[in-house]
Design a binder for these strands. Structure first.
Lengths: 107, 107
DNA sequence: CCTTGATACATAGCGTTGCTAGGTATATTA
DNA sequence: TAATATACCTAGCAACGCTATGTATCAAGG
């Protein structure tokens, strides 16, 4: 995945991934990799701070649990998070269509 | 258009817009607005420096002209620019598919 | 037993890059 | 003659994802 492509779309991806399947950070990274056909390889230094930010913003909530001796922080999307996600999905569609519109005209 | 959405996709858009129709900066901004259905409203402070950067990188070349008393710098895509554009188009498709893949699974 | 690799979390600080804000200049319209 | 549109430019800021680094547990291999 090209350098800065993610910029501005990270929240959308994280919210969508968690909506699909509530999970802890490490698993979210895995899920994104799988669902993207291996194209989304987000480093931990990107994902963890973003999850914290989304929780502080009230879009995600988390609880600690333990699995096979390792502690996990599992996230799920809040009501406000769902609303925000839907808005960002809408924004993505618009942006995507806008880019396609420019590309089409230049073939 | 949402805040940082453009990040990392500006070069693609500019190269594609100029490939579609060689033009001067101000017109490129207009063309992007039109081709995107009004969604891409790039400020001059974004576009002009980017055009300079792309020219320095050898992906665009420009020449000065004059139209109705006002000077214009008209850009066109170089050979290298075309190659780069095709690569970035490929990257865009991949990124776009990756995002869609994540969104689909979370409906 | 001890090292390596995978799992799982965290954060300080850096670098990139688009945007805001400001500036110059000409032509047209009110 | 003031405002608006056209047309260019740049310094400096701010946002934000990433690198690098650190901690800790468990499984597997030598």
């Amino acid at each position: 995945m090209r350098g800065e492509a993610l910029r501005g779309h990270l929240d959308l991806l994280l919210l969508a991934a968690v909506r699909a399947r509530p999970a802890h950070g490490y698993a979210i990274i895995e899920n994104l990799r799988l669902r993207s056909g291996g194209n989304l390889n987000l480093p931990e230094g990107t994902v963890y701070p973003a999850l914290h930010r989304l929780e502080r913003a009230g879009l995600l909530k988390s609880r600690w649990s333990e699995a096979s001796g390792r502690r996990r922080r599992t996230y799920e999307v809040t009501e406000r998070g769902l609303t925000e996600l839907r808005a960002q999905e809408q924004d993505w569609r618009e942006f995507s269509r806008a880019v396609e519109g420019v590309l089409e005209g230049s073939t």
